[in-house]
Design a binder for these strands. Structure first.
Length: 629
RNA sequence: GCGCCCGUAGCUCAGUGGAUAGAGCGCUCGCCUCCGGAGCGAGAGGUCGCGUGUUCGAGUCACGCCGGGCGCGCCA
């Protein structure tokens, strides 16, 4: 076993107070238990009793029984043989055996000083981060992106940014739906409508927009069902497509081009990291499917059942208690998406050398992925790699049903995003801030993304423009406002924004590939001896130190909402501090210290939001007008 | 029928086996000669769907019910 025990675990990362405390307690705990324990086994938690203490250690309670000792006595022993003196006040045993830990303010101040000089804000680069493939967004060609693509796109992108920041090499894969019988129907429909007749005509040149294609797609599907002759021609068209017949091929390529133009528009609006090179659609795996089928057959993992080539990974039973198949090749000889997913997985491990593959795909496909992963493991395709379905719930309307338009159609993603921006613009106008389309976009898009990221991804959530654009509560607007306030104070103190911006990695740097301008360090703009006197500024200081743990906790289960929860708590803590502690008018030393706290708040919020793919502007309104001008 | 997920304050949601279960909205009451009031503080509001277990300790883990959602052979 590799030294798992040394690795950072749930909610604990090395520069985080919880992790540092755990490491101090660990030697004594190992001695007392004789067990090889890791940081998470030290049971260090943030304390709910904020007045007494900041952290608590529950290890004595956890191990007392096993060791046959009284919890309180064990707690005393643990304290006696641990060296905590520089970090916290003398620990106290409370209740049945809790160890209450109160951080020394001087220590907190020292750690904050170190953070000021650290552009990574205490987050360590993973030494062996491995190579992670993230499969996300995955829209369909010839269909408009709709609200069903929102979560995959937003969550996948946030995970990509967080992982890259932590030093993991990430390969984004946009598994677009660009193949299969639907395209036979669609292309046949287009041909019969007269498209591509003069050899070079393309949908776009014919004036077909993505919306037109979407409409053709639907009418083709309807015809396919009702008109057997058309269905026959559509099937023949699939064969033409597979064999690369030029006119069919040209039409298909133009469909893909026009669709990618549409995806690009949405991705630009969302500021998503996905690039054209990241597209690896279903069509890309067609040449591999025969080999996949053959390999599975040769290994005895697939056999013909009811005329289809099926694989039955162990442990899955269906309707009549029978085994559930993955259908590799259908009766009609065509490959299914089960086959495509298997081929993609094999390719990602073998050719892309992934050590980890994340599938950011909706929860309804859980069974499908469990089966694909199980079969891949049986086939030996997951050697040295792990695959994980990062599932998410649905976006619901106010009626708690899948969000749809009044007519029952899926909500177009572009409409939804534009409405968010429009509403943000209306709010700005209402506040007398005026026309600023870019700011409205930052606020509106940020609100949509944050609403999606801030609840547990596995749960459904109810979509509400009103709530997500509120200034109160756990919203991006509240965080952006807190950040802007911190910046406003710094501005008044004469600390240049550019300097502050350079002092940490911005969202764009996070989006960059490894090696592209990740380490362009500059000197931090502020150096100060911190003083933590007031309860609210001490609490803020500790909240700032918890950033690495919050990020680690979010990454631990690929749950971005944990980072959101942290950022909101930080902003709340900052607001309380801001309210009760004068900054600019404080005595010199205290003023410097409090400005440093503001700088750290601004940096943490900016970085944290950046990791979620959300911009944090330095101001939310035009600069105040000078009377002289 | 089988499987997965959900059920926490009137509403929307946090809660990674630990102390008296927390936020925001809404409701009640306070706070601007002061750095961005787009803010801050306080109060009321809970059989954590129900039950039985495991545990020193259960909102959290197991099992069984009730209620809701989603899957389960040739759509992707």
């Amino acid at each position: 076993m590799s030294d798992q025990s040394e690795r950072d675990g749930a909610g604990v990362s090395c520069a985080d107070p919880a992790c540092l405390l755990a490491r101090r307690l660990l030697p004594a705990l190992r001695e007392l238990t004789g067990e090889r324990l890791g940081v998470r086994d030290a049971h260090v938690r943030e304390s709910a009793r904020e007045h007494d203490c900041d952290y608590q250690c529950n290890a004595a309670l956890a191990y007392a029984k096993r060791l046959g000792r009284a919890p309180r006595e064990l707690a005393e022993a643990l304290i006696r043989s641990s060296d905590l003196a520089d970090i916290c006040e003398p620990p106290l045993v409370a209740g049945p055996g809790f160890i209450n830990l109160r951080l020394r303010s001087e220590w907190v101040a020292g750690e904050l000083g170190a953070r000021l000089a650290d552009r990574r804000l205490g987050v360590a680069l993973r030494q062996d981060g491995g190579r992670c493939v993230i499969d996300y967004s995955s829209p369909n060609v010839a269909k408009e992106m709709h609200v069903g693509h929102l979560r995959s796109t937003v969550i996948g992108d946030a995970l990509l940014r967080m992982l890259r920041f932590c030093g993991v090499e990430v390969i984004a894969q946009n598994h677009i739906g660009d193949w299969g019988t639907p395209f036979g129907m669609l292309i046949e429909e287009l041909v019969e409508e007269g498209a591509g007749e003069d050899g070079g005509a393309e949908p776009q040149q014919d004036g077909y927009s993505i919306a037109d294609l979407d409409a053709f797609y639907k009418s083709a599907q309807a015809r396919f069902r009702s008109d057997p002759a058309f269905a026959e021609r559509a099937r023949a068209r699939v064969v033409s497509l597979q064999s690369g017949e030029p006119r069919t091929q040209a039409l298909w390529e133009s469909l893909v081009r026009e669709s990618e133009r549409h995806f690009r528009e949405i991705y630009d609006l969302l500021s998503v990291c996905l690039r054209p090179e990241d597209v690896a659609g279903e069509s890309a795996y067609q040449p591999l499917l025969e080999a996949v089928a053959q390999e599975l057959s040769e290994r005895g993992l697939a056999q013909i059942s009811d005329g289809a080539l099926c694989a039955f990974p162990a442990g899955f039973s269906g309707r009549e208690g029978g085994a559930v198949p993955l259908i590799i090749r259908k009766q009609d000889g065509g490959f299914s998406y089960d086959a495509t997913d298997l081929a993609a997985l094999r390719h990602r491990v073998r050719e892309l050398a992934a050590t980890e593959i994340l599938y950011v795909v909706g929860a309804p496909q859980r069974l499908h992925f469990e089966m694909v992963f199980a079969l891949a493991a049986e086939a030996g395709w997951l050697e040295g790699a792990s695959a994980r379905h990062v599932a998410f719930g649905s976006v619901l309307g106010p009626d708690r049903k899948m969000l749809r338009t009044r007519s029952g159609a899926p909500v177009r993603l572009l409409d939804l995003l534009q409405e968010a921006v429009g509403r943000a613009q209306a709010i700005l106008a209402e506040r007398g801030i005026g026309e600023d389309r870019e700011l409205a976009r930052t606020i509106g898009i940020g609100a949509v993304k944050y609403a999606d990221l801030s609840t547990d991804r596995e749960h459904d959530y109810i979509f509400s423009f009103e709530r997500m654009l509120a200034f109160e509560g756990n919203t991006s607007v509240y965080l952006q406002y807190a950040n802007a306030r911190a910046h406003a104070v710094l501005r008044r103190a004469g600390i240049a924004e550019q300097e502050l911006a350079r002092s940490l990695l911005g969202a764009d740097a996070l989006c960059a590939q490894p090696g592209e301008d990740r380490e362009a360090a500059t000197a931090p703009p502020i150096a100060a001896e911190l003083v933590l006197e007031e309860p609210s500024e001490r609490a803020l200081g500790i909240a700032l130190l918890r950033f690495p743990g919050a990020l680690a906790g979010a990454l631990d289960d690929y749950k971005p909402h944990r980072l959101c929860t942290y950022l909101n708590a930080l902003a709340v803590s900052f607001s309380a501090f801001y309210e009760s502690c004068p900054i600019l008018e404080a005595p010199a030393a205290l003023r410097e210290s409090r400005l440093a706290l503001c700088a750290l708040v601004a940096r943490t919020l900016t970085l944290g939001l950046g990791l979620l793919g959300i911009r944090a502007p330095a101001r939310l309104s035009p600069p105040p007008r000078r009377s002289a001008q």
